[in-house]
């Protein structure tokens, strides 16, 4: 990871709808003393277009975005951006981007003591985003972070067997009622886990789960920021 030249790519949901995630992430970066840049007029990663079948539009968009990002380390908050920039750019454009997800960065920062955490007894469960977990095989970074923050309480279906939040694949826009029903089934597992906080590492997941339940849903960045110990 080349932290001297890092771009924080917020992604559309953290940029437009859940700004708290982007703000929390920037605060953590500052706390850790990491130099980073934000792209003015940040472009779309192309994920949404790819998943909904608009491949030609996606490729056009991805080519433009690749030109802006290539060569730097790209930090992303969104599991969808992560999968797309890391896997699809390689497969479809043969562009090998250096992409890191916030969960991976936070895990490193905690391990290297660049941020100091004040542990607590809070009971937290973790929802694996499909694009980060099953699609990219990253299950442990978020868990490592959460274990240092409090008590991790797993849901019945976790890691590669985790249930979807319901908002992927354009279902939330095309069939919102299906999205809601799927979220409710996932939230039943949150209830059963005995946790007080539901944490996830994808803004799309947070949006759909928070809309459909009463449990506190926090992106990993928001939870980390809350637990940073100021010397």
């Amino acid at each position: 990871m080349n932290t001297n030249k890092m771009i924080y790519f917020k992604g559309c949901v953290a940029r437009e709808k859940l700004k708290n995630i982007a703000d929390a992430t920037e605060n953590i970066l500052k706390e850790a003393g990491i130099n980073y840049q934000i792209i003015e007029d940040e472009p779309c990663c192309g994920s949404v277009l790819l998943r909904t079948g608009f491949v030609d539009d996606a490729l056009e968009q991805m080519q433009k975005t690749a030109q802006l990002l290539n060569g730097d380390t790209i930090l992303v908050s969104c599991a969808g951006c992560y999968r797309t920039l890391k896997k699809d750019y390689k497969e479809l454009l043969d562009v090998d981007l250096d992409v890191i997800h916030t969960s991976q960065l936070f895990s490193e920062l905690i391990e290297e003591k660049k941020i100091i955490i004040k542990p607590s007894h809070q009971k937290i469960t973790y929802h694996d985003p499909c694009h980060l977990g099953r699609h990219c095989g990253e299950y442990e970074a978020s868990r490592k972070v959460l274990e240092s923050l409090g008590q991790l309480m797993e849901m019945e279906h976790n890691r590669d067997k985790a249930l979807c939040c319901g908002s992927g694949g354009g279902v939330k826009s095309a069939h919102p009622e299906i999205s809601d029903s799927i979220a409710l089934n996932r939230l039943k597992e949150v209830d059963k886990s005995g946790a007080d906080i539901l944490s996830t590492s994808c803004p799309f997941c947070k949006l759909n789960l928070a809309e459909n339940g009463s449990v506190e849903v926090l992106d990993l960045s928001e939870l980390v920021l809350r637990c940073i110990k100021h010397e």
């Binding site: 437009e16 779309c44 949404v48 277009l49 909904t52 079948g53 608009f54 539009d57």
Partner: peptide
């Protein structure tokens, strides 16, 4: 399969709108 379907004109209206938003505003919403 979705790609073929949209090429044949079968896709949700909501997705058409999102596609347009990305093109004109640089974001899906």
């Amino acid at each position: 399969i979705r790609c073929k379907s949209q090429e044949a004109g079968f896709y949700p209206r909501a997705h058409g709108k999102i596609r347009k938003n990305i093109k004109t505003k640089g974001k899906p919403f």
